[in-house]
Design a protein around this nucleic acid. Structure first.
Length: 351
DNA sequence: CATGCGTGGGG
DNA sequence: TCCCCAAGCAT
């Protein structure tokens, strides 16, 4: 690898950097403008396994409502979970609050600048610690995300499948990281992977690294990185009960903090299982009506088919699960997507 | 080290 | 319709 590879990429970044609400453009950065570490942390957590397009509006909403890490630390749990609803991987939201409260109470509202310091905080792992340290504080740390893995695999024509190849690709990425402008370099590699060195149909002709790229020379770029095959998703089934009290209040429950959709609002119902199971007792003993359709939703590791039962509940109902949310306080947007799908299907029969 | 953990968009 | 994928982390 030529010693100028990093500089070639930085030159490309100077003219091709994507614009994002949390990002300081390279020209401003050169002029001495530093990013807000709170913004970088928040965006990096939101971006874990999540697209820039999906994150952008959530980021704006969070920063408008909680402008500093101290503001976020002071927020109610339920408000943060509701604001995160729809973004997925809800453990991130719970860890986000834990982290904000730790930074506010134990670090005087200042994020640690080092990888090691950052990695002690909840929800911050090897990637995110490197990203915050590099981008927010311009430390020469190496970020290794899915983009970097793909770019390195192609640059070095590495055919070892992921995740076994991860240590090799990490070493290759470290060897390329410059001491000069490490924060912009980190963002540049990821922009390259997102816009040029894409998973399918990479635009090799436009790539600032087209000359040194060995996979391009070998014609193997589009098939890299190799990955070990994934398991098929099983189908699970369950029942959800959508109940509405005579005064219009909805019967909802806050799910346990750990596990699937942990800490989020949802409709009471059965467990979701592959094997047929006897329907559980409904949360209120009354006359429930099955809906015609079903809700289909796919999670990371299974497909779900949900049958829906609805009922109007007496004003004095004492549910065995969940509690009543007044109609005026209920916002479907506060539900995780699968639960919002249930609501969309059920609401027409409860008006 | 393998698994659990969401969602929406694109091919 | 389906599969793949996206700035991973915790256990």
């Amino acid at each position: 690898m030529r010693e100028t590879a990093a500089q070639d990429l930085l030159d490309w970044y100077d003219t091709h950097a994507r614009t994002m609400p949390w990002r300081v453009p390279p020209a401003d950065r050169k002029a001495g403008v530093a990013p807000d570490p709170y913004h970088i942390w928040l965006s990096e957590v939101m971006l874990q396994q999540t697209t820039v397009a999906a994150v952008t509006e959530y980021f704006r909403k969070f920063v408008a409502r909680w402008p500093t890490v101290a503001d976020l630390a002071a927020a109610e749990d339920a408000d943060v979970m509701a604001a995160w609803a729809g973004l997925g991987y809800y453990a991130r939201a719970r860890n986000l609050l834990k982290c904000a409260r730790t930074v506010a109470s134990e670090y005087g509202g200042q994020f640690p600048r080092t990888r090691a310091g950052l990695e002690k905080l909840p929800g911050i792992g090897p990637y995110t610690s490197a990203a915050i340290s590099a981008i927010a504080f311009d430390q020469p740390e190496t970020v290794v995300d899915g983009n970097v893995e793909r770019v390195m695999a192609r640059l070095h024509d590495e055919h070892t499948p992921l995740p076994a190849a991860k240590p090799i690709l990490t070493q290759q990425a470290e060897a390329l990281t410059p001491q000069h402008r490490p924060g912009d370099y980190a963002q540049a590699v990821m922009d390259l992977g997102a816009t040029i060195c894409t998973p399918r149909n990479p635009a090799c002709g436009l790539c600032p690294w087209r000359t040194p790229c060995t996979a391009r020379q070998a014609g193997t770029a589009p098939e890299l990185p190799k990955k070990t095959p994934k398991k098929a998703k099983p189908v699970r089934r369950g029942i959800a009960y959508v109940g509405r009290r005579a005064d219009g209040a909805w019967l909802l429950e806050t799910r346990p903090d750990s596990g699937l959709l942990g800490g989020m609002l949802g409709w009471p119902g059965s467990d979701w299982s592959e094997a047929p199971a006897p329907p559980p007792a409904p949360p209120v003993d009354t006359d429930w009506h099955p809906l015609e359709g079903e809700v289909r939703h796919t999670f990371t590791h299974f497909h779900l088919i949900l049958a829906i039962q609805t009922a109007w509940l007496p004003q004095d109902a004492a549910p065995s699960a969940g509690g009543f949310v007044p109609s005026a306080e209920f916002r479907p947007a506060d539900l995780p997507t699968v639960m919002r799908k249930v609501f969309d299907l059920a609401q027409t029969s409860l008006r």
